[in-house]
């Protein structure tokens, strides 16, 4: 069995569990590279988001995931070979580099390099700028990684994606899933100035994602 087939099977299973209803406010078809940034409440988030993309976009879209979680044998195999996940060091990515120790700063810089290289000239990425899973009630403050990504690649579209109900399929601490219908909303791409300060960028991005939760 080839990897795209396994990927489709996993995506199909995720769609059965999560029965996502999808709403596109952003144009569905695009030739532009995109960063899909979503709220994070469940281990299923990126698989479901990925599974509802149109197949031609799905082939070019890679998730950015924390290396420590996907470190172990089979999980790593699936992440790297099936989804071509971009694995980065969470310690580096999540720390605010302004007050981080020099080691953290260094690893954050390395993580950014890996991400920018993965983006290349063809691919799109799925990222979770909260850095860790939340409770599903509110979108937590963003880590600054998404801002530095925009600084390196301002030509890429930043599309907010709001995921609802996925935490109910697999609540924290549970290992057996229950099927629940979820909702995926692709919001309009961020409208940004030529120059945005870090705070202004993060505020805009967070507000755009948060607003989708009330759509």
């Amino acid at each position: 069995m080839s990897h795209p087939l396994i990927a489709s099977a996993i995506a199909g299973g995720a769609r059965l569990l999560a029965g996502p209803t999808v709403r596109w406010i952003a144009p569905k078809a695009t030739s532009r590279q995109r960063i899909y940034f979503a709220n994070h409440t469940s281990h299923l988030d990126f698989v479901v988001l990925w599974s509802v993309l149109p197949p031609e976009l799905r082939r070019l879209t890679r998730p950015v995931a924390a290396k420590d979680y996907w470190q172990s044998g089979l999980k790593r195999q699936i992440a790297v070979n099936v989804f071509r996940a971009v694995l980065v060091d969470r310690g580096g990515k999540s720390s605010d580099s302004s007050n981080g120790a020099p080691g953290q700063l260094e690893s954050a810089r390395r993580a950014m390099e890996v991400i920018v290289r993965a983006l290349g000239r063809r691919h799109s990425l799925i990222i979770f700028p909260e850095g860790t899973r939340g409770d599903g009630d509110r979108v937590a403050a963003f880590k600054s990684g998404i801002y530095y990504l925009w600084c390196k690649r301002p030509d890429v579209e930043f599309v907010p994606v709001y995921l609802s109900n996925l935490n109910r399929i697999l609540p924290k601490g549970e290992f057996l899933p229950v099927p629940v219908i979820s909702r995926v909303v692709f919001g309009p791409p961020l409208q940004l100035e030529q120059r945005e300060s870090k705070d202004s960028f993060l505020t805009k991005a967070h507000a755009a994602l948060d607003a989708l939760g009330h759509e």
């Binding site: 029965g19 549970e174 099927p179 219908i181």
Partner: peptide, 21 residues
Amino acid sequence: LALREYVSLISPVPADHRTLF
């Protein structure tokens, strides 16, 4: 599929999870 739709409507709490399973 019908039960999946139904469960999505009744807003279960996390304590219901295993019974639902």
